[in-house]
C-alpha cells in the first residue's frame, strides 16, 4: 500500500511567532518544525502500511526556505522518502495555490491513499486536503478518526458533533485526519540516524510546471487586509454553593445539551 502524507513545517509554537507587518502573514524565516497535527497523519499512514503488510509512506511538503528538519522528523518516525517543494516564488501562496502545488507533487507518485491533517496549527484554513482532492479529482473524507482498508476501498469513521459517521470510500482517496486519534510515535535514535540517508527530493514550483505568476503572491487571489487580536475569553460563571449548587450545574449542562 502506498500512502502519501502531506506535512507542513511551521514555526515552533513554543516560540512566540510574529507577523510580517507588510503582508500580515506569519514570519517563516525561522527554524520550522513538523506541525504536530501532521504527526497524526504520519502515524496513521505508518500504521496502515504496517497493517497492510507492505508498502510505504512518503511525504510531500511545501516550505518557503528549503527547511528540512520537520521532514527529517517525519522520516525518523518511519516514512520512507520525502518530496519538498521549495522556492521563493512560492512565498505568499494561499490555500488553493498550496493545494495545486501539493497535488502536482502527489500526482506523479500514484498513491493508493493521501492523508493530511485536518488543519495546520499556524494557518488553520482547514481547506487544503479537500482542495487537493478536487484538483486530483479524487473522493475526499474529512475528520477521519479511524481508517480501515479493505481491498480497493476504505471504511472511515468520520468525527461529527454527535459521534461519528461510518463512510465507505473507494481508493485512491484523500483523507484528512483529526488530531489525537492515534498516538504518534517518538522519533527514536535509530529512526533519526536512518532518516539521514533517506531520500529527500527537492523540487521547485517550476519543476512541477508552474509559471512564476501562477504561485505565490502573484498567483493567489488572497490579500490579508487586516488582522486583529483575538478577543479575551470572558470570565466563566461562578456558582456559589448554598447547598443547591449541584442543581444549577445540572441545569447549566442541560442547557448546553451535554447531558
Amino acid at each position: 500500500m502506498k500512502v502519501v502524507v502531506c506535512v507542513k513545517q511551521i514555526p515552533d509554537p513554543a516560540d512566540p511567532g510574529a507577523l510580517d507587518p507588510e503582508t500580515r502573514t506569519l514570519k517563516r524565516d525561522v527554524k520550522l518544525i513538523l506541525d504536530e497535527s501532521d504527526s497524526y497523519g504520519v502515524e496513521m499512514g505508518l500504521q496502515l502500511v504496517d497493517n497492510a503488510g507492505g508498502g510505504e509512506v512518503t511525504l510531500v511538503s511545501m516550505a518557503p526556505n528549503n527547511e528540512q528538519s520537520g521532514l527529517r522528523t517525519a522520516l525518523a518516525m518511519g516514512a520512507a522518502s520525502a518530496t519538498l517543494i521549495s522556492d521563493t516564488e512560492l512565498i505568499g501562496s494561499d490555500a488553493l495555490t498550496t493545494a495545486k502545488v501539493l497535488a502536482a507533487a502527489i500526482k506523479d507518485q500514484e498513491p493508493d491513499l493521501v492523508i493530511a491533517g485536518s488543519e495546520s496549527s499556524d494557518g488553520y484554513t482547514g481547506t487544503v486536503p479537500e482542495m487537493i482532492a478536487a484538483v486530483l479529482d479524487l473522493p475526499s473524507v474529512t475528520a477521519a478518526k479511524s481508517i480501515e482498508v479493505g481491498g480497493d476501498a476504505i471504511q472511515v469513521q468520520r468525527q461529527t458533533d454527535a459521534g461519528y459517521d461510518v463512510v465507505d470510500c473507494p481508493l485512491p482517496a484523500v483523507i484528512s485526519v483529526t488530531a489525537g486519534v492515534v498516538e504518534p510515535r517518538y522519533p527514536s535514535f535509530k529512526g533519526i540516524m536512518a532518516a539521514k540517508s533517506k531520500p529527500l527530493d527537492e523540487k521547485s514550483s517550476a519543476d512541477l510546471g508552474f509559471a512564476a505568476d501562477a504561485v505565490g503572491w502573484a498567483g493567489s487571489g488572497q490579500e490579508i487586509v487586516d488582522v486583529a487580536e483575538a478577543p479575551q475569553r470572558e470570565a466563566g460563571e461562578v456558582i456559589e454553593d448554598d447547598g443547591e449548587a449541584h442543581l444549577k450545574i445540572v441545569e447549566f449542562l442541560e442547557n448546553l445539551k451535554v447531558i
Binding site: 522528523t73 525518523a76 517518538y186 527514536s188 533519526i192
Partner: peptide, 22 residues
C-alpha cells in the same frame, strides 16, 4: 543551546524527541 558548536543535527533531533518524551 542550539548555537553550541558541539552538537550536530542528530543531537538536536534526539534532544527534541527526548524532550517530548519527558
Amino acid at each position: 543551546t542550539v548555537s553550541s558548536p558541539f552538537y550536530n543535527d542528530e543531537h538536536r533531533a534526539f534532544a527534541d524527541a527526548v524532550r517530548q518524551f519527558t
